[in-house]
Amino acid sequence: MTELIEFITNNLQMVYILILMIFVGVEIIGHVPAVLHTPLMSGANAIHGVIIIGAILVMMGADPENKLALALGFVAVILGTLNVVGGFVVTDRMLEMFKKRK
């Protein structure tokens, strides 16, 4: 328990951000037409590809002798990049089609 209190006091800023971001996420989605559900999901999918930053940090912080960590990190970066690039490109492809209809 003391650890938890200590953590919260030390990271009060992050806790604030966490809570405010939850509300932002809820507000943003609000009343989105059903037609846009799929592109929106796909766009959100690309954004959580931000995990790639974590993967890069892991690799940069890893002990260069630790081959297992580097190998796993390498795979994590590839997967994260797939998530980011694939996610944004697919979303763009979907939305490209919406644009044509005008």
């Binding site: 996420g25 943003i28 959100a44 931000v50 930053i53």
Partner: peptide, 15 residues
């Protein structure tokens, strides 16, 4: 990572 992740977490739940 925190903002991107939470944003998708909460927006995704609403979606």
């Amino acid at each position: 990572l925190l903002t991107g992740g939470i944003l998708v977490g909460s927006a995704g739940t609403i979606l």
